[in-house]
Amino acid sequence: MKHLLKSFAPLLAGVLLAGTLQAQVASPSLNLSQPNLTSAVAGWREEISAQASYFEGNGKRRQGGSDVYEFSSTGSSSGLTLPFWILTLEAQAQNRSYKTKINERQEGTLPIDQNDSHVALAISDNPSWFSLGVGSGTAQQNDYQSRLQPKQHSQLSSLDGSLSLKFGDWFYLGNGVRQIRDQTEERVDLFRFERLAGVGMIFGQPGESRLRLEVSRIESPKAFEARDASQAYHRHDHELTDFQEAEVLIQGLLFSGRSMTKTRDEKIANGNSATQMTTETRREGGVIWVPKEGLFLGFAFINEVLDHPNYTDSHSSFQINIGYLF
């Protein structure tokens, strides 16, 4: 089993690595420090803002009835939203690093660090009923595989295009597609794509109490690239990610709850095509002060669980969000 998991280690990369939970596909978050998932959503932003966050957490891996690893993690992110004329530019970057306290390596990949960046450009008419966005991003990651391979580098480069439509000032529909180049050491590059779709509702006018609800989904079909003369094959299993979000803004205080569930059809490559599901869940709850202008500050508690057929990773973290609204 160990060697089989090892051969699929790149597929496990990315687990429990999400920092700020990006879940905005159709409508913009009422939290200005919240980065968007699709570029088109940036087009709904009307304020210039700069934001940063710091997060810290710890967790453990449970395998075979006992705790085999303990993690601690730290990270930070920064972002800038710049609307001008009918265009909106949004840039964000994030890093996160892990320390593993118990050096008792067993099965499965262990994350070491991650660096993400994304730039989005959106165009929307005025008064707005649509927003069209394009974006580009990279997500670099290092993982521990084994003593022989203590650091494996992988990188996802993406180009995305998306459209968000607004009906009647409160109902939003979002759709997008993302092309991804999946690069991992010792494997051939894999080109694949993801589809994004979401429905959002925002009740209330700016400056008043507001309620925002959104559900969205990312579908990432399976993809395969055969080996070449020097590098091994590269496979991506089918993934489905569902998001739910609720935000309530009362007198400048924004309370939010988000959840994400990602399921991955993971085949064990032993020739028998056995299919196992890996499920990753993330729950986030927080509060932030959102002023009409000036400094904003908030915090969030985050719980993440990765339920793999062979082990369970759990991780809880605390995030501080700070920014300035111009």
Partner: peptide, 8 residues
């Protein structure tokens, strides 16, 4: 915030 809300 506005001398009525504090987030810390």
């Amino acid at each position: 915030g506005e001398n009525r809300v504090s987030v810390g």
